[in-house]
Simulated assay, not measured.
Amino acid sequence: MCLTEGCRAMGFARILCSNNMRMAAGRRNVSCRMVSRRFRRPSRDQGSMIEANLGEAIRRLRERQRLTLRGLAGKTNFSPSFISQVENSQASPSISSMERIALALGVTLGEFFQWAETKAPRIVRVAERHGLTSEWSKAKIEALGSSGVDSKLEAVMVTLFPGGTSAKHPTPQPREEFAIVFSGTVTLTLDEGPDEVLAAGDAVSIQAGLPRRWWNTDTVDAQILVISTHSATQP
């Protein structure tokens, strides 16, 4: 081993030298590799979220309203066994099914997150978002603020993984929505109209009651920021 003058000046580094003898050229090649003792602290995972228990939230809301499994099933047109499976985390409903259950319970989709919150934060850090995952939709939904009867607006970030979709067919929503594609590209179907491809930065306003379907046909994740009106008096 050897130390070159340039390597000696770097007192904070470890020097690894190797001599390679090349007989044909009659020369000695000296190569030095410096390994710094300093290291970079791992960056915080920007995609992390606090996973909320959808089944527990539905059960609490249902019992608070003194609804039986059959009662909630009748209001959603789902079977009692399906509602039971969702409450016991044995089934992962689509985004559309989540919205239908929320409507039957007289809440918004964002209010499913409330049971996990200890306070109503005005600032929601990226790693402190409460979220729900839908295996059926291949998607996750993150709350960007606190929902409640005093709120006028509700904001959620919807991430559709490749092949992810909000529903099999366009489904109507009871509240007006404004959506902007945050990243990636998505296909939007409104009512019986043609499919529209939206890229990052594209926005759309959707009237209450208009059927819509989101679909990620790309090979990378797509994120949609959805802001909807929040009625102070729930049905």
Rank of each mutant, 00 (worst) to 15 (best):
G164H: 02
F182R: 10
S166M: 07
S166C: 07
T185K: 12
P174L: 09
E176A: 11
G145F: 07
A179C: 14
L160G: 00
I141K: 01
V149R: 14
T165K: 14
E135I: 14
S137C: 04
I141L: 05
L188D: 01
M157P: 01
S137T: 04
Q173H: 15
Q173R: 15
G131Y: 00
D191S: 08
P194W: 05
E135K: 15
E177I: 14
G193Q: 10
F161G: 04
Q173W: 13
A143L: 05
S183N: 10
H169F: 12
T171N: 11
T187M: 09
G184T: 07
E176Q: 15
G148N: 07
R129D: 02
S134D: 04
K138P: 00
Q173D: 11
S166E: 04
F161C: 06
P172F: 02
T159Q: 03
K168G: 08
S147H: 15
K152C: 08
T159F: 01
S166Q: 06
E135F: 11
V181K: 03
I141C: 01
E142T: 10
V156S: 00
E154L: 08
G131L: 02
A139Q: 02
T187A: 07
E192D: 12
V186I: 09
A139E: 02
E142L: 13
P162K: 03
E142Q: 12
S134A: 07
S183D: 11
I180P: 01
V181W: 01
S183V: 13
R175K: 13
K140D: 06
H169R: 11
F182V: 12
A167Q: 03
D195Q: 06
G164T: 02
V158I: 15
S146P: 10
I141Y: 02
E142D: 08
A179M: 15
L153R: 10
E154S: 09
V186S: 02
T159E: 00
G164R: 01
P194S: 03
V186E: 00
A155G: 10
P172V: 06
A155W: 06
S146C: 14
G193S: 08
L160T: 02
S151T: 15
A155K: 09
E135A: 15
G193R: 15
M157H: 05
G193P: 06
G145M: 09
R175A: 12
G193I: 11
L190N: 04
A179L: 14
S166N: 06
M157S: 01
P170F: 08
T165N: 13
T171Y: 13
F182D: 08
T185C: 08
G193M: 08
M157F: 04
E192A: 12
V158F: 05
S147R: 14
G163T: 07
G163M: 04
F178A: 07
V181D: 00
S137A: 05
S137R: 01
M157T: 03
S166K: 03
E196Y: 12
G193K: 11
Q173T: 14
A179K: 05
T189W: 06
G131S: 02
M157V: 04
W136P: 07
V186R: 00
E192K: 13
V181I: 14
S134G: 06
I180G: 03
F161V: 08
E154A: 07
G193L: 11
E135P: 05
T165D: 07
S151R: 15
T133A: 11
A155N: 08
E177C: 11
P174N: 08
R175H: 14
I141Q: 00
R129E: 00
V186Y: 01
K138W: 07
K140G: 05
W136A: 11
G163L: 04
K138H: 09
